[in-house]
């Protein structure tokens, strides 16, 4: 998998800061890293899961990958071309090949457009202009996501959350993408509907050979859908491995804490006792997780650990990974 020909997207030292205003009337401002020096490759045909808690920078990372926002520093390459140096035509081609599915199926669909016009926006990008072709293509896409073609003249409010998410997926597919970034696509859905949409995404990814960046906070969902998983904490990737090893043999203490905290519907399991106090992580020198980490030693507060390969394909950014 590490063959460079197989790399679809490649991020190098990618950072994005936002300025935060503090003090009375917001007179002072300082920048906060949402994504901090992230280097990552996404291979063709894989689903890369990105997990982290709120504020970890996972959504910002997905937006950077699609150039919906500009990086502060670092590069994103798609098929070997840097997103920031693309010309107008190249960027338009990229917009066709890389699409997004959003979290909220209520606010991400324009309530004034019918289903056929929503999907039509993607068909515009794909350059399908003939009316007959557009109708057939819309019908095909709706069937692909498990909806009846007869609904194409209805409006978003006439559908349930799960159905809207299917419409959102059909719209993304309309442009004929090779890459899809899905930002929490099932977190607004009920469990029984969530399973339907996850099955649909997996099946589409297989049949259309899509490459997918799947951003979510639910570790079980991410495990289910991803080939590899990256764990983000405070803007950095702290662990990266294939789905099986990251869950069965996590190396980073943060990944372990996340996994232990998930409530499991097994009444025989005694819930683990979590650390009683949450500690606000401190920006600056040392490992960003050191303040919360029960394995932290003096050197952790001095050096920022690099993401290092500990086992083939299993990376962790922890000075003590392997010994703890």
């Amino acid at each position: 998998m590490s063959d460079t020909n197989n790399v679809l997207m490649s991020m190098r030292h990618l950072s994005r800061t936002f300025s935060q205003r503090t003090g009375l009337f917001g007179r002072q401002s300082h920048s906060v890293y949402a994504v901090n020096n992230v280097s990552l490759d996404i291979y063709r045909g894989e689903t890369l899961g990105l997990v982290g808690e709120s504020g970890s920078g996972k959504s910002t990372f997905a937006r950077l990958a699609l150039r919906l926002i500009e990086p502060t520093s670092g590069t994103v390459q798609f098929e070997g071309k840097s997103l920031t140096s693309m010309g107008r035509d190249e960027l338009l081609a990229f917009r066709r090949k890389a699409q997004m599915v959003f979290q909220d199926p209520y606010s991400s669909l324009n309530p004034r457009l019918t289903v056929s016009r929503l999907i039509g926006e993607g068909l515009d990008l794909a350059g399908i202009t003939n009316v007959v072709d557009r109708t057939t293509e819309t019908a095909r896409l709706l069937e692909l996501v498990g909806l009846a073609p007869s609904i194409s003249n209805r409006y978003p409010h006439q559908f349930s959350g799960g159905q809207r998410q299917r419409i959102g997926i059909a719209r993304a597919l309309a442009a004929g993408p090779t890459f899809i970034a899905a930002d929490e696509p099932v977190s607004a859905l009920d469990v029984s509907v969530q399973a339907q949409v996850l099955n649909l995404l997996l099946q589409l990814q297989n049949s259309l050979s899509l490459t997918m960046l799947f951003v979510a906070h639910d570790l079980a969902v991410v495990r289910h859908i991803s080939d590899r998983v990256a764990v983000m904490f405070l803007g950095r990737i702290v662990e990266l491995a294939d789905s099986d090893s990251i869950y069965s043999a996590p190396l980073h203490p943060y990944t372990r804490a996340l996994l232990e905290a998930i409530p499991i519907p097994d009444p025989d399991r005694t819930p683990p006792t979590p650390p009683a106090i949450e500690i606000q992580p401190i920006e600056g020198a040392g490992c960003p997780y050191a303040a919360r980490c029960r394995f932290a030693v003096a050197m952790c507060r001095e050096t920022v650990p690099d993401l290092r390969e500990h086992e083939p394909g299993h990376y962790a950014a922890c000075l003590r990974a392997g010994e703890i």
Partner: peptide, 20 residues
């Protein structure tokens, strides 16, 4: 059954209740 499991083999298809 519709909950993706956290351990064991990953299944290719989750059980899902049809409809709503």
């Amino acid at each position: 059954k519709a909950l993706p499991p956290l351990d064991g083999d990953r299944v290719t298809r989750l059980y899902s209740l049809p409809g709503q």
